[in-house]
């Protein structure tokens, strides 16, 4: 496993585009996560203009335990950045035909796919750890008091966030293997939300229960949007087994479809 991961990392670590995209991704992740209070200040100024007033210090955006879900959800928005990296990585192999040479040199098709899947796992893990560390640091700065074990409620959103990233990267990898061209794959990746939305809105009127089973919906469902709780609405603040199960099945299917395609095609 480590051997295959090292092979794929060797391809990436001397590739400038990789560092640029990763740099932008992790930089935005960190800066974005640390700028929540500034955003709130801007928001309050905006509302002031309408004659309303909010006390931003009353919103526990960065307080334990709210911060876990808040940060996990916000960071989830940025997964497109790292997914584009994955698309570039796989479609390059087709454009440069290096996938062909890799197999000629003695990789099996399974091993080739696994090397990409392991990199996806690593990128997901790195995302999760970064966001977790940011949450710990900002939480410690902003939280007025630490109330254990209450402070840890909602920490289970981190494994869910990990699955969210990994599922989406698996989807991106599969699209890349099917489409093989970077531009088209990225456009499809961006459009897939729109396409799913159109299908969902048609289905919603007849089988509302089916919505949660849609692939991208299931990925979004892992960590639900938390901010409605600050306007006194009920939100789901726990990870549900069903959401994990649906997303896990999709993740498996994405990788399995990629495997089938790779197995069957002439390279």
């Amino acid at each position: 496993m480590l051997h295959l991961l090292r092979i794929d990392l060797k391809k990436m670590t001397s590739y400038r585009t990789f560092w640029v995209i990763c740099g932008i991704y992790f930089f935005t992740l960190i800066i974005g996560a640390a700028s929540g209070m500034e955003l709130l200040r801007m928001l309050s100024r905006l509302i002031e203009g309408f004659g309303q007033e909010i006390n931003i210090d009353r919103i526990p955006l960065y307080h334990f335990p709210d911060i876990w879900q808040n940060l996990a959800w916000t960071s989830g928005l940025l997964k497109m950045g790292v997914a584009i990296m994955v698309v570039v990585s796989i479609t390059n192999e087709y454009t440069y035909r290096t996938i062909r040479q890799n197999i000629i040199d003695g990789m099996s098709r399974e091993e080739f796919l696994l090397s990409k899947v392991y990199t996806n796992l690593l990128l997901s893990l790195a995302s999760m750890v970064s966001v977790f560390l940011i949450a710990v640091v900002t939480g410690l700065i902003y939280s007025p008091e630490l109330d254990f074990p209450y402070a840890f409620t909602g920490i289970s959103f981190y494994p869910a966030y990990f699955l969210e990233i990994f599922a989406f990267l698996s989807f991106a990898l599969m699209l890349g293997i099917f489409v093989q061209r970077s531009g088209l794959t990225i456009i499809l990746l961006l459009f897939s939300y729109l396409i799913e939305l159109i299908v969902k809105s048609n289905v919603d009127n007849y089988f509302p229960g089916a919505i949660q089973f849609f692939p991208l919906e299931s990925i979004m469902n892992l960590v639900p949007m938390p901010f409605a709780r600050y306007v006194f609405q009920e939100i789901r603040d726990q990870v549900t087994i069903l959401s994990i199960a649906i997303a896990a099945v999709w993740t498996f299917l994405f990788n399995y479809f990629a495997y089938l395609k790779l197995k069957k095609s002439d390279i």
Binding site: K11, S14, Y15, R16, Y96, R97, T98, R100, Q101
Partner: peptide
């Protein structure tokens, strides 16, 4: 020949 163009 097939190689990664951006690698030495």
């Amino acid at each position: 020949p097939i190689f990664y163009p951006y690698l030495s």
